[in-house]
Design a protein around this nucleic acid. Structure first.
Lengths: 110, 110
DNA sequence: TGAATACCTGAAAGATTGTTCATCTGTTAT
DNA sequence: ATAACAGATGAACAATCTTTCAGGTATTCA
């Protein structure tokens, strides 16, 4: 535990990077955000349409969209007094797929 | 918004599945858990070694490991009074890679 | 200009989460 | 048997997150 311990410390995620990873995954750690993202995976939508589809208040949706915007998971374009949102990032699909596979795996796997 | 709306509802993640997705990603939404996972990615380790490497109390590490166990992200084997933990699931690597790529992307992409 | 619409935002309340502390179980060594 | 050690666990407190509520801005329409 002297030489190999030094090696280890180099591989352990630094506090800063670990923090950025955590912040990103925290955004994906909410059921309503996933419902919003899955709706936007179908097509771009306005805030009020999203609110109806996922059964949330417009305000709550707007708050969540702000978070998804700052995390660069969604993009938006203004058209008159409407704001259309859509997925920004292809990575979401991959993350979704990986998580699904993990969750669908039997309790004992390797 | 009559026919296409029906289609939409079928694609939006149901509450139950969205909840399971969220719970899984919530586990990955903590910096200390990522540090633990990254340490275990190097080699299997005991609780007290982990505690030292990631600079947390043994108790805190143990609590986190329980969560990682129930989420089937880590596995353990007992040997005497030691308990060795290691990563259980290859999916973590893919999730890590996807997240890293996303985070490393320039602010304006796509 | 005034009313209606679409969306955003700050503050606060309620829920959730992570760590600490004290304690407990099980194993090894003397 | 007793002490020391490795780890697990419950309760509680602090910090964080999510929604609601009450307004606020910007755009459209009459």
């Amino acid at each position: 535990m002297s030489v190999s311990s030094d090696d280890l410390q180099q591989h352990v995620l630094g506090l800063e990077k670990a923090q950025r990873m955590a912040e990103f995954f925290t955004v994906l750690g909410d059921a309503n955000r996933w419902r919003i993202l899955s709706a936007l995976a179908v097509r771009e939508m306005r805030v009020r349409d999203l609110a109806e589809v996922v059964d949330m208040s417009e305000s709550a949706v707007s708050h969540q969209l702000r978070l998804l915007r700052t995390t660069r998971l969604v993009r938006y374009r203004k058209q008159g007094r409407n704001v259309f949102y859509c997925l920004k990032d292809r990575h979401i699909f991959n993350l979704y797929r990986e998580a699904s596979e993990h969750l669908d795996e039997p309790a004992d796997e390797e």
